[in-house]
Design a protein around this nucleic acid. Structure first.
Lengths: 224, 224
DNA sequence: GTCTGTTTGAAACATACGTTTGACCGGCAG
DNA sequence: CTGCCGGTCAAACGTATGTTTCAAACAGAC
C-alpha cells in the first residue's frame, strides 16, 4: 500500500462513477465500496463530497491546461505574428486533449463526459470552481477564436462558440454509448481520435457559415 | 377549484423546478410547496416521482409531435416528390417547436432545457420512456435528414447528427444562463427564436461541411 | 339530508444520504 | 518499551428523501 493509494483509488472510482451517473446520483457509499476503502476516508482525505468533485477535475484539468498553454505557445510562435487559423486553433485544442497521459483506455471520453456534466448539472460550486481555477487558458482560447473569425460580429461569435461547445461536450459526454450504437448498427469501430477528426471540420464549417444564411425563411405557416 | 387544477399546478411547478435544477436535485417537497398542494398529491395523482417526470414530458411532447408530423406532411406535400432540403427540414422542426402554444413566456426554453437534461442526466427510465413513446416522429426526422444529405456516408451522417443534437440540446438546455451572460456582457437581448435562427445555419453548414476537410492535419507534435 | 366515491391534509414510514465520532492499528522517534 | 500520530474502521449522527397511511373534507346523485 506504500504510503496511501487510498486517495488515488477514491479519485479513480469517483471519476468513473460520476461520469456514468452524474454527481448527485453518485453516493459516497458507491464510491467507497467501488474503491474498496472505508466510507469515512472520503471526508478524511478530501473534507467533503464537493471537495472530492473538485479534486477529480483538478487531477485532469491542471496538467491539461498546462499542456494546452504549451500548444498555444507553439502555435503562436509558428504563426509568427499572424493569428492562427480557426482550424489550427481547434486542432491545437483537440490534440492537447488527446495527447494527455491517460490512466486507462477510456480516460479522455470519461473526462469529456465529466466536463459536459459540469456544464449541464446545475452544480453552482463546480462552475465557480472551474471558472476561477482555469480562467486563463479559457480566455486565451477565446481570444484565439476571436482573431480567427474577425468577420463575425461579437454576438454571432458568442452563439456559435456555444454551439461548438455543445456539440463537443454532448458528443464526447456520450461517446461511449454512441460508439456502441454505431458498432451495433453499422459494424464500425471508432476511436476518440476519429470522433475528434470528424468533429473539428463540422465545427469549423459551422463557425464559418455564411452570414447570408442567418436570415430565417419567410414567416409563413411553414418553410418558404 | 373546478374539478382539480391540482394536477396542473403540480405539472407547472415540476416543469419549472426540473428545468432549473435537474431531476434528482428537485424533491417532491419543493414541487408541492411551490405548487401549494399537499405532498401526498403527487403520489396520489401520478403514482411516483418518475411517473410525474414522464407526465411533464408527455404534456409538451404529445402535442408537439403531432404538430411536427403535420409540418413534415406540409413540407413533403409542397416538395412534391423531391426530398426537402436540409434547411427546410431543420426549419420545419424549429418552427414547430417555436409555434407550440405556450403556458408562459419561457415555455419553449424551459422545455428545451428539459430535453437537454433528459439526454444528459442518466435517467434510464426517461430515455426508455421517450424512445418508445415518440419513436415515430424521430425516425421520420432521421429519414428526412438522410434524404437531404445523400452525399454523406452513413457513418459521417451518423456522427454529424450527433453533433447537431449536441449543439442544440446543450445550447437550449442552458439558454437562460447564456442569454443572461450575453445581456450582461454585450447588453443584447435575445429570444429563443433568434437563437434558433442562429443555430439552424450553423447546423446546416456543419452538416454539409466539405468531406475534404475531414482529413486531420499532419500528425506531428502540433498542427501542420 | 344522506350516502358514495374522490380528493386533500397532517403525520408517520422506511430508507438513503453526507458527515462525525471514537476506538483501533502500525510504524517510528525518543 | 513508551508515546505519539497519520491512517483506517465500524458505528452512529442528524437530516432529507420518496412513499404510505388514514382521517377529514368535499362533490354530486339520489
Amino acid at each position: 500500500m506504500a504510503q496511501s493509494d487510498t486517495v488515488d483509488r477514491i479519485l479513480d472510482a469517483a471519476e468513473e462513477l460520476f461520469a456514468e451517473r452524474g454527481f448527485s446520483e453518485t453516493s459516497l457509499r458507491m464510491i467507497t465500496s467501488k474503491a474498496k476503502v472505508n466510507l469515512a476516508a472520503v471526508n478524511y482525505h478530501f473534507g467533503s463530497k464537493n471537495a472530492l468533485i473538485h479534486a477529480v477535475f483538478a487531477r485532469f484539468l491542471t496538467p491539461f491546461s498546462a499542456t494546452l498553454e504549451d500548444a498555444f505557445d507553439d502555435l503562436e510562435a509558428k504563426c509568427d505574428g499572424e493569428p492562427p487559423t480557426l482550424n489550427q486553433t481547434l486542432w491545437a485544442l483537440t490534440e492537447s486533449a488527446v495527447r494527455m497521459p491517460q490512466r486507462n483506455e477510456k480516460g479522455i471520453s470519461i473526462f469529456m463526459r465529466l466536463l459536459g456534466l459540469a456544464y449541464t448539472q446545475s452544480q453552482g460550486h463546480l462552475r465557480k470552481f472551474l471558472e476561477q481555477e482555469y480562467s486563463q487558458p479559457f480566455s486565451r482560447f477565446m481570444r484565439l477564436l476571436k482573431e480567427a473569425t474577425p468577420q463575425l460580429s461579437a454576438v454571432d461569435r458568442y452563439w456559435r462558440i456555444q454551439f461548438m461547445l455543445g456539440a463537443t461536450a454532448f458528443t464526447m459526454s456520450s461517446s461511449d454509448a454512441l460508439r456502441d450504437i454505431l458498432q451495433n448498427k453499422l459494424g464500425v469501430e471508432t476511436t476518440v481520435q476519429e470522433i475528434a477528426a470528424r468533429l473539428v471540420p463540422f465545427l469549423a464549417a459551422g463557425m464559418q457559415a455564411d452570414d447570408a444564411m442567418l436570415v430565417p425563411p419567410a414567416h409563413k405557416t411553414s418553410v418558404a
